[in-house]
């Protein structure tokens, strides 16, 4: 499985220091999430849109990811306007849509998409490995970073195992049908997936121990902070914070 599609490319963001990107992303995500109303989230959304335009991700993959995330937001649009208790409302037959609820749903949608855009533009443009390293440099707890990194690593392992089992099943002429043989086979696939992934992880752990693993990844490559990185960090954080302050003192 190829999860790091966006990490390939050579936009401005790809060349930025991952530490700087994390330091811009965290204030952005937090301040965007706690902002209220429509205007401020809209400003954040526009800022993240600019980020995306700079990062120039593969459009097809990008839209695909957006569709996945926005599917869940669809439910918010169904439930909040119908269940929000406030006046005034629009009535559609026996349904009552609250204005306040609609506004709330729109606000959530904007915030969600702004953060997704920013994640893709800022974080996805680095490989997971360099993000993990950047987190270590920024003094994140090393256990947390190790968990984060291995978690990502094992999604790929499990997917690989799944593909292998699928091939094994197909190679012996399996044809799904409505019968016990089919259900049993599916159950075996799930069972084998669990056992094999577990075994594989044990093996990898042994391989890591055999090479002197002590519970954390040592840093091998060091990042070099360029002037441009610092300038971007200051400029981007300035905008992110200004938008938030604008919301408070408006």
């Amino acid at each position: 499985m190829h999860l790091e599609v966006f990490a390939e490319g050579n936009s401005f963001f790809h060349s930025l220091d991952p530490r700087v990107k994390i330091l811009v992303f965290i204030p952005f995500a937090i301040l965007c999430a706690i902002s209220k109303g429509i205007i401020i989230p809209l400003l954040y959304f526009m800022l993240s849109l600019i980020f995306i335009l700079i990062a120039k991700p593969n459009l097809k993959v990008f839209l695909n990811r957006l569709a996945g995330a926005n599917f869940f937001i669809l439910f918010i649009w169904i439930f909040i306007p119908l269940s929000y208790k406030s006046n005034p409302y629009i009535s559609l037959g026996f349904l009552k849509l609250s204005y306040k609820g609609l506004e709330y749903a729109l606000s959530i949608t904007l915030k969600c998409n702004a953060i997704i855009f920013a994640t893709i533009a800022l974080l996805s443009t680095s490989t997971i490995f360099s993000l993990a390293h950047a987190m270590l440099h920024l003094k994140f707890p090393s256990k947390l970073v190790t968990i984060f990194f291995l978690f990502y690593r094992y999604i790929t392992v499990m997917h690989e195992e799944y593909i292998k089992i699928k091939r094994a099943v197909l190679a012996r002429g399996f044809k799904p049908g409505t019968n016990l043989h089919t259900y049993r086979t599916y159950a075996y696939i799930v069972g084998a997936l669990l056992i094999k992934s577990f075994e594989r992880s044990e093996e990898i752990y042994k391989a890591m121990l055999a090479r002197g693993f002590k519970g954390f990844f040592p840093l091998f490559e060091h990042f070099k902070l360029k002037k441009l990185d610092v300038a971007f960090a200051i400029f981007a954080n300035f905008i992110v914070i200004s938008i938030y302050l604008l919301g408070i003192y408006k």
Binding site: K164, I165, R167, A168, A171, Y188, I189, A192
Partner: peptide
């Protein structure tokens, strides 16, 4: 697939039951 028999290089890939 039903008429050709493939042996995988890695036997772990082959067995799943």
């Amino acid at each position: 697939r039903q008429k050709l028999g493939l042996l995988f290089q890695d036997s772990d890939s082959q067995l799943f039951c």
